[in-house]
């Protein structure tokens, strides 16, 4: 098993009245009530992902599916239960983390690259390829502030996907960006990453994306696993619940 999620419960403490200031905190403390409301995002979620599987998680907005990813990638610690996975193998694909409009395209490639775990040597080596893929030759010394939004997302995508596919790839919503031509190119690259032999876990609320790519599906609703198994069956059940074909 590559990823084992064992009986994970995630609760967030939500103060009934958001205490964000010292004054309010003192007042509440004096009154002797600092009660919390427990918000349960996930309750007793368990599932396994085997090596080489492409697993899709579906669910409506707020069902807790992104929380699962954050726990697996290690950004959040679960309240109860545990996740067995080699964190060094896990890569969460994120676009444009830390992009700063006041920096040039080139500076952003290095900043963003460093943040998502590339070494300097790797970036030096791949720099030309990144620029070429993003089709931004001649713009790299410009500040990103002057870029169009399409250019920004192309650059973010090019940096994020230049890596050798990690052993465990996590995708929060499948990414296709830019204009029609670039979209085709980016979808192709994502698909080759997904089917490059690594274990993939992706989240989406679109059943067509899940159907197209996954070997197994998990449906999470209101923090609980509703159904797990064959992609087509799970998608059908989800669609009939949602009442619409997404």
């Amino acid at each position: 098993m590559e990823i084992e999620v064992q009986d994970v419960t995630m609760q967030f403490k939500k103060a009934k009245e958001e205490v964000f200031s010292l004054k309010e905190a003192v007042i509440q403390k004096l009154k002797g009530r600092r009660s919390y409301e427990l918000f349960t995002a996930l309750s007793n979620v368990s599932f396994c992902v085997a090596r080489g599987e492409v697993v899709g998680i579906i669910g409506t907005n707020g069902s807790g599916k992104s929380t699962v990813l954050k726990i697996i990638s290690g950004a959040l610690l679960p309240t109860k239960g545990r996740v067995l996975v080699d964190r060094d193998k896990v890569q969460l694909l994120t676009l444009g983390a830390g992009f700063d409009p006041e920096l040039t395209g080139k500076e952003n490639v290095y900043l963003n690259g460093a943040l998502i775990g590339y070494t300097k040597e790797f970036l030096d080596e791949k720099y030309e390829e990144i620029v070429r893929f993003a089709q931004l030759e001649g713009f790299m010394e410009e500040k990103v502030r002057k870029y169009s939004s399409g250019m920004v997302s192309r650059l973010g995508f090019a940096v994020a996907t230049i890596r050798d596919t990690p052993e465990i790839l996590i995708l929060d919503e499948v990414l296709s960006v830019g204009d029609m031509f670039f979209r085709e190119k980016s979808e192709k690259r994502i698909r080759s990453m997904i089917h490059g032999g690594s274990t993939v876990l992706m989240v989406s609320h679109s059943t067509s994306v899940i159907r197209k790519n996954c070997t197994k599906a998990i449906w999470i609703e209101k923090g609980r696993v509703q159904m797990e198994g064959d992609t087509d069956q799970v998608c059908k059940a989800y669609e009939s619940m949602a009442g619409v074909k997404v």
Partner: peptide
């Protein structure tokens, strides 16, 4: 550790450039 050092250098460069942008 090397990667952390690289990240810190990059983030610091950003802070400096932004400060005087």
């Amino acid at each position: 550790r090397r990667q952390y050092a690289f990240v810190i250098r990059q983030l610091t460069a950003r802070e400096m450039k932004r400060k005087y942008a």
